[in-house]
Design a protein around this nucleic acid. Structure first.
Lengths: 228, 228
DNA sequence: GCAAAAGTGTTTCCGCTACACCCATGA
DNA sequence: TCATGGGTGTAGCGGAAACACTTTTGC
């Protein structure tokens, strides 16, 4: 690798909106930086892109470095580049959004991070720069995507109940659905595999399911369109 | 304005995929540069972003400078930033796509452009860098967008017939539709205003329509969703 | 009168919606 | 036995799809 491969590109950064779902609320992971610039303020995890680093790779690296998260669903969101979005000098940022299984996430904030916290999407603090705008944009995109792509599962544990899934959709899309109709629809898609039952719940145990990506992929090839 | 406002940002550019429709084919406008780098090659119109220029503004400026196009529908598409996409040094490009009324377009190639030509989307030449990839991505996006946003009209003259409109959708989405069903659907949306009839056509004259953006906007506010 | 495209209704079918009660489990 | 959420079927409605012939115009 060339010797300048770790050099940062000063005017290019990536920021990531990380969504999580705790069975009742949609949340965003926000961090507090331990170093300047921005020390002590809550902000989206973000950092400069390196000279010899593709955008997707940069986004993954930054996520990992700042939050410890790895192997999560990520997608490029939009590029924000207003001249004065960063007050000191011009920085264009390529924003991504990530979906994580909140239960699995054990925060491992890197050395540059003094704190990391999930905030409900409804009670976000005021963040610096255009970070609130980025989150709003990500939320809008998530609402659209979740209906037509099977990505909601990324926010649930590998094994989940249909009620959890319905709850997820209701929370993100912000309206209630009929239980029977929801089950009919989702099971009719043939992309869920039934597993064993829950244990140790203080009520009738529900059946667990997992999403079968292979089945989905083969259906998609045949022209099938996921839609809720 | 600060004195460095016209300075270019060397590692940041914008490229634009310009779609047009000539009543039978979907086309992309490709230009031939009269100056280095890239002199003599067909390529997407693109150029560097300026130091004190927002992304959308840059995209519009570049479009105008290179093709003379102004006041057309534009939307940010995606940001392409593979390390070696541009062979000489690292350049990240924020791609846009534009929809133009091909009939109105009188090419006014700027001084840096020696030629500009519409190519059918099915017979594109091999373009340099990742430009073919960008076009494919734009096409994919257009196919999705045109179904759920009233943007197809941007590709037609202000006054158009229903057959032209249907033809446009069939061409972009690549399948045929039933004439009666199409008319019922589109007229049922209540976003088209009937106008006078065509004149001078060698067959029965069709009624012309125009898209009523105000009506659409007020419907949208009431929760109406455009969908074809 | 002929070629070419415009314009027009009805029936069928399928998928979405609405809707309410019994069941299993742990405390 | 009670509280909590799990699980199930059917009827009606509405929108989508299928389908073919007549009309207008210029040549």
């Amino acid at each position: 690798m060339a010797k300048n491969s770790n050099q940062i590109i000063k005017n290019l950064s990536t920021d990531c909106v990380i969504f999580g779902f705790d069975n009742s609320e949609l949340k965003v992971l926000v961090i507090k930086l331990a170093v300047e610039p921005g020390k002590g303020e809550w902000a989206l995890p973000g950092s400069n892109i390196l000279q010899e680093e593709n955008l997707d790779i940069a986004a993954k690296r930054v996520l990992k470095e700042l939050t410890g998260l790895d192997n999560v669903y990520m997608e490029q969101l939009y590029t924000f580049g207003d001249v004065y979005r960063f007050p000191l000098f011009r920085v264009v940022t390529v924003a991504y959004f990530a979906l994580v299984k909140i239960e699995d996430y054990k925060p491992e904030p890197g050395p540059k991070v003094s704190d990391a916290q999930w905030f409900s999407i409804k009670k976000l603090p005021k963040l610096p720069f255009d970070h609130n705008e980025i989150i709003n944009y990500a939320l809008k995109r998530l609402k659209q995507r979740v209906r037509i792509r099977p990505i909601g599962f990324e926010l649930l544990p590998l094994k989940f109940t249909l009620s959890q899934l319905q709850n997820l959709y209701e929370t993100i899309m912000d309206f209630d659905m009929d239980k029977r109709n929801f089950r009919k629809k989702i099971l009719g898609m043939n992309v869920l595999v039934p597993l064993e039952k829950q244990k140790g719940v203080p009520h009738r145990a529900a059946k667990l399911y997992r999403f079968d990506k292979r089945k989905y992929d083969s259906l998609k090839e045949k022209g099938y369109n996921f839609e809720i």
